[in-house]
């Protein structure tokens, strides 16, 4: 819970009436889906005598996996909280990596391609995302201030803008800019198209985040700043925005992570970013899965980096409140 109570309720998993039904459910699930015939079953197959019937194999697999899970829970529960979190995180990461590994990947192929994937694909993805994030932030700030202003024209534009760009699929926006603008006589390159579509779309979402953040600051803060003689610009930049950052940062971090991955949509107009290369590089040698998994891991790692950055910024803007 966010604010700790001072009652030691027994942890959910330490209660027999939760622990044993959970194990039973896992066992039943493994049995139901014929686990003996799966990749897990093949891992277990080494231990049981050869030539056993499929039923025996599934039974053995279910028993072993369930027992391992039970043992794991008991061990993890004895650790301090932080270690629990990290250990469980690590275990799940191992499971997902095993899942990838089970595809019988050609690591030689990945090794051959990863350099190009990073220097061309990752760099392009990062470039597009970074520029789009910057423009989207500026658009969002302008949109939010316009929506809260007493200027009817600005409000009208801002309302139309958020409505349109939140209402159209991002993919459609990319096509419209890339294929539609040439009708007006402006031929736009693929990369600027991607940046424009991502900026406009995410700027629209973030406008609402910024607006809510600004509105979360109590009236008294505006009044105190105005009573001191601060002008509207100073009230906004010195008093209101720094405080609304606490509210704005977490959902904005979400948007950044989301945009990083949505930048893959730009591949439809042929930008050589990570997703495009993952698709095309795999095609030549029918090694799709290798490239997809490599690209997935790269996206994931970048998201983790963004998560960490978001955490640092949050701590910074919370310092006045957390004492």
């Amino acid at each position: 819970m966010h604010y700790h109570d001072n009652v030691d309720y027994p942890p959910l998993l330490s209660r027999p009436n939760v622990f044993f039904p959970l194990l039973a459910a896992v066992f039943a699930g493994l049995w139901w889906f014929n686990a003996g015939d799966s990749a897990i079953g093949r891992l277990v197959a080494g231990i049981i005598p050869e030539g056993a019937s499929p039923a025996t194999q599934t039974l053995a697999t279910a028993v072993i996996v369930t027992a391992f899970l039970a043992f794991n829970i008991v061990v993890v529960m004895r650790l301090p909280l932080r270690q629990q979190v990290w250990l469980v995180w690590g275990e799940l990461a191992v499971v997902i990596l095993l899942f990838f590994y089970s595809f019988d990947l050609s690591f030689a192929f990945i090794q051959r391609k990863i350099g190009f994937l990073l220097t061309q694909g990752l760099v392009t993805t990062l470039y597009i995302s970074a520029v789009s994030i910057t423009i989207a932030t500026i658009l969002a700030l302008m949109g939010a201030i316009a929506k809260l202003s007493s200027n009817g024209i600005a409000q009208g534009i801002a309302h139309f803008y958020t409505s349109l760009f939140r209402g159209l699929p991002l993919l459609m926006q990319i096509y419209m800019i890339y294929l539609g603008l040439p009708q007006l006589g402006y031929v736009v390159d693929a990369v600027p198209t991607g940046i424009a579509a991502l900026s406009l779309c995410y700027g629209a979402y973030m406008t609402e985040i910024f607006r809510a953040g600004i509105e979360s600051i109590p009236k008294g803060q505006w009044e105190a700043a105005r009573a001191l003689g601060l002008r509207p610009g100073a009230v906004m930049t010195r008093i209101i925005l720094p405080q609304s950052m606490r509210v704005i940062i977490p959902p904005t971090g979400n948007q950044f992570i989301s945009m990083l991955k949505d930048s893959s949509l730009v591949s439809v107009v042929g930008v050589w970013e990570l997703m495009y290369l993952a698709r095309t590089q795999g095609q030549t040698e029918f090694r799709h899965v290798e490239m997809m998994i490599t690209a997935s891991l790269i996206y994931w790692l970048m998201s983790i980096v963004l998560e960490l950055i978001q955490k640092r910024i949050e701590t910074h803007f919370n310092k006045a409140v957390t004492r």
Binding site: E223, A224, Q243, A320
Partner: peptide, 20 residues
């Protein structure tokens, strides 16, 4: 602006700027 420069105000809820 001229009036506000010459008139100070103290509020019931203090209204200090929490981030400063």
């Amino acid at each position: 602006e001229a009036v506000r420069r010459n008139v100070g105000m103290v509020f019931q809820q203090f209204n200090l700027f929490p981030h400063l």
